[in-house]
């Protein structure tokens, strides 16, 4: 099932299929390891529900929902 990262629930894991957006923002996402093929685990949301904290490539990354919605993932069901 394809889902955007901002729609993820805490504890869900997914495989990145596509990163949308353009320019610097997209470049920055790539540079921080958010590339197709990477596994993302949604660890938690900030006290007010945004931004998100994910585990990717062995470290913790935080990004806003508005940036997370650019990331399309295949949800891993085995969790």
């Amino acid at each position: 099932m394809l889902k955007r990262l901002d729609e993820f629930k805490i504890g869900e894991t997914g495989l990145i299929k596509k990163v949308e957006g353009e320019g610097r923002l997209r470049r920055r996402l790539f540079d921080m390891g958010v590339t197709p093929g990477a596994t993302v685990y949604l660890r938690k949301k900030a006290p007010l529900g945004d931004p998100l904290e994910v585990t990717i490539r062995g470290y913790e990354l935080t990004l806003r929902k508005s940036e997370a919605c650019l990331v399309v993932l295949e949800v891993k069901e085995d969790q």
């Binding site: 996402l29 931004p51 913790e60 935080t62 806003r64």
Partner: peptide, 9 residues
């Protein structure tokens, strides 16, 4: 501005 940041250990 975008907020894409590492949370260090």
């Amino acid at each position: 501005a975008p907020f894409i940041m590492e949370l260090p250990q």
